[in-house]
């Protein structure tokens, strides 16, 4: 395990994603990435009694797909790292109650996807675990209810507002050779440049993403050309141009290789305002679409930077600004090695 400068880990051993599992809700299944997910629910309630249980069903299904594809059982897992957006991350806690895997709950808002993956890879690399199950979930209705208004309330739509992705993603991290390698991780600092508008997360989170990406290039000494894609979690159509400009001013041009999960998962004509957000946004795009592309070798090296706004529903009303964080993980295709 070696540390590059201050914030980046380069794993000593080859660490692999054994398998992934992704499930999404109705709106995501009508988006451009439809077909790259394991299960697409037609109804927002996923056949459950209430929203909370619907979100739990999402994570449960994502994990069962992930385990089945790897041919493993819950008992084979040494650790379960999971998080979500609910108060006290109840979705993850309740899933951990069911699967009985030693559990570390994690919270980094929408950055939890890469936070759990980075920590999981590190624990496997350092030998404290052989198989780590990482999972995150988010649900549009549970998030709306917790952070904004009741789901049936006819509130106004802000153009800068994002739409929480309904879905869940899970991945198994292991040393057993697989198709996609987890090479490096850059852990982000919490950045707050004074945006207090909870309906403008893209603008609030862009500096955090810029800081993590900039630091990653400093730490690794690489250039943007070394990557096929740099993918941010949920900066949306508002935050993405800001991120590119922030980095461009510092001499880092990622314009051609940057994409945002929140913009990839929905088509422009879907009613999502600025784009998708939520833990599941980066998770289902990474573990679904990007994983497939990396596994088949059409993408060689991807830097996934999941961005999170670390607020609760009370802090913006108390005029607090929004602290933001971004965690990045470098995923590489392992296909060539097999030849």
């Amino acid at each position: 395990m070696s540390k590059l400068r201050k914030q980046t880990w380069r794993f000593d051993h080859p660490i692999y994603l054994a398998s992934t599992g992704t499930v999404v809700g109705p709106l995501e299944s009508r988006g451009p990435l439809s077909g790259s997910f394991d299960k697409e629910y037609g109804a927002l309630d996923c056949g459950e009694k209430n929203w909370t249980e619907a979100e739990r069903a999402l994570m449960r299904r994502a994990i069962s797909f992930c385990l089945a594809k790897a041919g493993k059982k819950e008992g084979d897992m040494d650790l379960f790292l999971a998080g979500d957006l609910m108060d006290q991350t109840v979705t993850s806690n309740f899933i951990a109650r069911e699967n009985r895997i030693p559990f570390i709950g994690m919270f980094g808002a929408c950055s939890t996807s890469m936070e759990t993956l980075a920590a999981g890879a590190q624990l496997v690399d350092s030998g404290y675990a052989d198989n780590v199950l990482c999972a995150v979930s988010s649900h549009n209705a549970t998030a709306e209810r917790q952070f904004r208004y009741p789901t049936e309330y006819g509130g106004p739509m802000n153009l800068t507002q994002t739409f929480t992705v309904t879905g869940a993603g899970a991945a198994i991290v292991t040393k057993e050779p697989g198709k996609v390698r987890v090479a490096e991780a850059t852990i982000g600092r919490v950045i707050d440049w004074g945006i207090g508008d909870a309906n403008n997360m893209g603008s609030a989170m862009a500096p955090a993403a810029a800081d993590t990406i900039w630091t990653h290039f400093q730490d690794t000494g690489r250039k943007p050309e070394d990557y096929d894609l740099i993918v941010t979690g949920d900066l949306s159509s508002v935050g993405s141009p800001i991120l590119k400009q922030l980095l461009f001013e510092k001499g880092l041009d990622i314009g051609k290789i940057h994409q945002d999960c929140g913009l990839m998962i929905y088509s422009p004509d879907q009613p999502v305002n600025a784009g998708g957000s939520g833990c599941a946004c980066s998770a289902v795009v990474t573990y679904g679409y990007l994983f497939k592309r990396l596994a088949e070798g059409s993408l060689r090296r991807v830097f996934v930077v999941a961005t999170g706004a670390l607020l609760n529903s009370a802090t913006p009303k108390q005029k607090d600004t929004i602290p933001c964080v971004a965690h990045g993980v470098v995923l590489e295709s392992a296909k060539e090695e097999k030849k």
């Binding site: 208004y149 309330y153 006819g154």
Partner: peptide, 28 residues
Amino acid sequence: DKIARFAGAGSIVPVTGFANSITSAALE
């Protein structure tokens, strides 16, 4: 809530918006 997407304040200001805020909170 679908109508409100189009109407904006047009469905918040009339008394129907008051009914919507009560019913939606109760339903949720």
